[in-house]
Structures are given as structure tokens and as C-alpha cells.
């Protein structure tokens, strides 16, 4: 099983951590030269090909949630080093320190409360820049606390998942977080709290095989890498050629593993719609401009479009 921090994915399609510096940039996916600012304005999406760049946790919150509404919780929780993992030149402690410096985060999962179109939600956002958003004891604990907070506040829980899997350097204790977090979702279920997950690039391994896929509704960003075992591992084990687009959002959607693929530009409206539908008692009334979405053939057609576009074969 492949679910450890990894810098690159051998999956077909281009993977790039985030937008490179400079005034101009060449899109990693289509190769077009575009203004960096234009990509940023389009929510870190290439204006030419629609490639969704990876975004950090706080950037992501800024993209989709009401401005200034985020209140962070459990922000002090950070990785411990239970194995005192040191092997040759690699030490876990230094790896975590580097991640903290590079991201300004204490861990790969940022938790708190925020508003989306006025609706209050409990929110978890994973950041792939932090040791590939792998899950160790800190991420597991934060997710459990996030669930407890959502239950206590009686708000829906939204999660933006991203992860290379369980964090190898915490060994078996990282693996146990899979059981712990899966059970935290049970607690949400018992309390009747809606749990909505957006799978982003990349979501794999032990996180894909635990709390990230236990959402009541599963959404994904377009063309994200989503899968359990790494493509390289599968290829190596089976000596088979993997199909084009293997382990992408579109592939998972076709296999019945996702409810919908949602482009970043529609994420806010989609999440707000789900929150209103699944948590009507706490919902803020819709703004009039969006009323057309509630019904009518035109609205249905418009809604069907992103799905059908997303399910087209990649080639």
C-alpha cells in the first residue's frame, strides 16, 4: 500500500504542487503561457485548460468561505515523534520542522469553523505541502476533535481532503489513526451531523481508505489524483499498463465512487447548496439571485453540464 509522503506521483497527467513564482507562468498541464495573476484570480485554475493547481489550506479557505469568517481551532496541535524515527540521514523531527517553516502551519490538517454563504460549518482543510498531508497522530487527533466540535455546535462538517496516506515516520501508530478517524465519523453519523467531503489532488492511501471516503456526500475537484494504492506500485506488482486517466476524479466518478466532480468555480455554491439541504434548521436563506438553481429545466441542464463534461474520457 502506498500512502506515505511522496513528492511526485507517477500517475498520468501533470502534477504540480502550486503556482510557480513570476509574472508569467507556463501552465504545467497545457503549456500555455499565462499571467500568473489571471490564474490566481480564477481560484488557482488555468484559464486555458482548467488545470486546478494545488492550494494551501488557508488559501483554500479564502477561496471558498466568507471573508474573515474562519476561526481556527486546535491550531497548536503538531506532530510528536513517537518512534524517534531516525534512519541514516533522515530524521522525522527535521522533516516536520522543515514543513512547519515552509508552510507556517503546525500540521497538515487545519481545523475550525467558517461560514459559507452565511451558513456556519465546521471545517477541515488538508494541506499537501505539509509532509504530503500524511496522517499521523496529530492529524488523527485534530480530525476527531473537529468531529466532536461539529457535534457540539450542531453544524455540518466540511472536509477538503488531500493526503499521501498515513505518515510512515509514525509507523504503526499512524496506521491506527485510520481506525480512530473512521470511528470519529461513526460519532458524526450517530449524532446526525452531515459530513461532506471534497477530495482534492492528491488523496490516496490510508486517508483515502479511512475518514476521507466516509463522507455522506463525496465530491472531488476535476482531474485530481484519487486512489488507494500508488499507480507505480500497481504497475510494478502486476506488470500491466494502466489505462489513461487511471485514478483520477473522473475515473473514480465513473466507477461510482463519487457523487459529483465540482470545478473550483462552482465549489462555493455547491457546498452552500448541500449545507442548506442537509442542515435546513441552521441555514441562512438563499440570496434571490441564486433562486433559479432550485428548479426548472434550464437550471437542471446547467447543472448537468459540469458532470457530463467531467466524465468525458481524458484522451
Amino acid at each position: 500500500m502506498a500512502f506515505f509522503s511522496r513528492k511526485t506521483f507517477s500517475n498520468p497527467g501533470t502534477r504540480q504542487k502550486s503556482i510557480p513564482d513570476g509574472l508569467w507562468m507556463k501552465c504545467v498541464s497545457c503549456g500555455t503561457t499565462v499571467y500568473r495573476s489571471e490564474v490566481e484570480e480564477r481560484l488557482h485554475v488555468c484559464p486555458t485548460c482548467g488545470h486546478h493547481y494545488r492550494v494551501g489550506a488557508h488559501d483554500r479557505i479564502g477561496l471558498h468561505f466568507d471573508r474573515g469568517s474562519f476561526e481556527e481551532t486546535h491550531g497548536g496541535i503538531t506532530a510528536a515523534d513517537p518512534l524517534e524515527f531516525a534512519a541514516g540521514e533522515h530524521t522525522y523531527a527535521s522533516r516536520v520542522d522543515r514543513a512547519r517553516q515552509e508552510t507556517g502551519l503546525n500540521e497538515a490538517l487545519v481545523t475550525g469553523f467558517a461560514r459559507i454563504e452565511g451558513n456556519r460549518v465546521a471545517l477541515g482543510v488538508m494541506d499537501s505541502r505539509f509532509v504530503m498531508a500524511s496522517m499521523g497522530g496529530a492529524v488523527g487527533e485534530k480530525f476527531c476533535r473537529l468531529c466532536a466540535d461539529a457535534i457540539q455546535a450542531n453544524t455540518p462538517l466540511l472536509l477538503f481532503a488531500a493526503s499521501g496516506g498515513a505518515r510512515m515516520q509514525e509507523g504503526i501508530l499512524a496506521l491506527m489513526q485510520m481506525a480512530k478517524t473512521a470511528d470519529a465519523v461513526s460519532e458524526l453519523n450517530e449524532a446526525g451531523i452531515p459530513y461532506i467531503v471534497v477530495l482534492t489532488d492528491p488523496t490516496s492511501g490510508g486517508v483515502f481508505a479511512s475518514f476521507a471516503t466516509l463522507g455522506d456526500v463525496l465530491l472531488a475537484e476535476p482531474k485530481a489524483y484519487i486512489g488507494f494504492a500508488g499507480a507505480r506500485l500497481i504497475q510494478g506488482a502486476l506488470h500491466v499498463k494502466l489505462p489513461q486517466g487511471f485514478q483520477t476524479s473522473e475515473y473514480q466518478y465513473q466507477n461510482g465512487q463519487l457523487d459529483r466532480i465540482v470545478p473550483r468555480s462552482e465549489m462555493r455554491a455547491t457546498l452552500a447548496q448541500l449545507v442548506r439541504l442537509l442542515h435546513p434548521e441552521g441555514a441562512v436563506p438563499q440570496e434571490p439571485a441564486e433562486e433559479t438553481e432550485a428548479g426548472g429545466d434550464a437550471a437542471l441542464d446547467a447543472q448537468a453540464e459540469p458532470d457530463s463534461a467531467a466524465t468525458k474520457p481524458q484522451s
Partner: peptide
């Protein structure tokens, strides 16, 4: 199961 530490929130 699992361990974590507390640091100042960033």
C-alpha cells in the same frame, strides 16, 4: 492511540 504535541498556534 497516537501521539501529538502542543505548539503555539501559528
Amino acid at each position: 492511540m497516537g501521539q501529538w504535541a502542543e505548539a503555539a498556534p501559528v
